[in-house]
Simulated scan of single mutants.
Amino acid sequence: MLPQLPCQVDFLLPRLADTLVEGTVARWLKRPGERVSKGEPLVEVETDKVNSELEAPIDGTLSEIVVPEGETAPVGAVLARITEEGAPAASAGSSAPATDRTPADQAPAGEGGLSPMRRRIAERTQEARATIPQGACVRDFDLSRLERNGGWTAYFVKALALASGADSIGVAVEVPGGLLVPVVREAMRRSTQEISADVADLAERARANRLQPAEVGGAGFTVTNVGGGGTLMAFPLVSPGQPGILAPGAVRSDGRCYVTLCYDRRAYDDYAADRLLAKVEEELARL
């Protein structure tokens, strides 16, 4: 009788977003030789759109890790191999071992001493500087009469959506090792309380690597609330594919704050951008 050969399944890097071309393995959650269950988180993967935990597609044993932590692979690449339940496990002697590192920001430093996420942020920053004619304008908003119920971010998301007509607004969220931008949908029709709850939920799941690919694409504008950390004014770069980004600063003791609109000059000239920023202030006053 011929010996039974192990039946192995290739565990591939899926396309987590429409424009995704590659991902970086941040952390393996299992070691070669350990059993895995279908639907169990197996590996954390970082991309320029979302950080995700990929689940095991079958019950079985992790027999080989092909792409070790800290390395980048293209979409469709084999990340690991799993021996199906009931089949003899293959030797894992040549597999790359998983480690005990936990935070994504402790991933091995790559080129220039940067973590994979920081390296991608640097690449996108260079792309933005090289391909987008950046412009910026600033206004000093009076928020002293606004009766706020919830975080400031929700109010700026709502006002920007109404002023620009963009119903999907990205919200910059600081995560270990970098920055992610989940998207608030249907911002024009939803209340600030609903948006505030959505922002809190998206931020929590972004920091826990539990965002879904559909939650990080398709934003018409972005809000980055730099004032949350006390910064008075900032000039963030416009991301490729968006016309602008709104950066409210810290609300001062007199109830005023500097709000910066950075914009793609191909979408707005200086006068149009200033009118948009003025309209954001008008919409805030109506909330």
Rank of each mutant, 00 (worst) to 15 (best):
E281S: 02
G70C: 12
L179Y: 07
G112K: 11
V43H: 05
V175Q: 02
D10V: 15
G60C: 12
D167M: 09
V184D: 06
Q212T: 03
E44G: 02
R207Y: 03
A208F: 01
A107D: 02
G177L: 02
A128F: 01
V226I: 13
V184M: 09
T260L: 05
A92D: 15
I132E: 08
Y268V: 04
V259K: 01
V184N: 07
V226S: 13
A278L: 00
P103W: 07
L162P: 10
P97G: 13
S94F: 15
G110Y: 12
R124K: 13
L16I: 03
R189G: 14
L12S: 03
S168V: 12
E34K: 14
I82A: 10
G39L: 11
G230S: 11
A166S: 09
G170H: 14
E127V: 07
P248M: 02
R120A: 15
Q212Y: 02
V216Y: 01
L143K: 00
L54C: 01
K38D: 12
T222P: 13
N225D: 13
Q242T: 09
L5V: 07
C137N: 06
S91V: 10
F141A: 04
P14M: 00
I65F: 14
L284N: 01
F235S: 03
D167W: 10
P68T: 11
T72D: 14
E174I: 15
P133G: 10
T47D: 01
T231W: 13
L179C: 07
R185T: 15
G76F: 01
L232G: 11
Q8D: 15
D167T: 09
P248S: 00
Q134S: 09
L284R: 05
K38Q: 15
E55F: 09
G220C: 00
P176Y: 13
A17S: 08
V238R: 00
A122G: 04
A208D: 00
D167P: 06
F156D: 11
G151R: 01
A26H: 09
L277E: 09
A214W: 09
P3A: 02
S191F: 10
V171F: 11
T19H: 05
A219K: 14
A163M: 08
E283N: 06
A273T: 09
D140F: 00
V43L: 00
R207I: 08
V181Y: 12
E44K: 01
G170F: 13
K49T: 07
C262E: 08
G217D: 04
P133L: 08
V50K: 02
R118W: 06
G241Y: 03
M188H: 14
G255T: 06
V184A: 07
E64W: 08
L232I: 13
V175C: 05
V226N: 12
R118N: 10
A26R: 07
G249N: 05
C137W: 05
R252D: 07
K49F: 04
V43R: 03
A159C: 05
M117V: 15
R210G: 08
D48C: 08
E123P: 14
D264Q: 08
S115V: 12
Y271R: 13
A92I: 15
T99L: 07
S94T: 15
D10M: 13
A128N: 02
T131E: 03
V138S: 03
D269H: 00
P248C: 01
P88N: 04
A87S: 08
A154C: 10
C7F: 09
R129S: 03
D201T: 01
R207C: 10
Y271L: 12
A80E: 15
E204V: 04
S37P: 10
D201G: 00
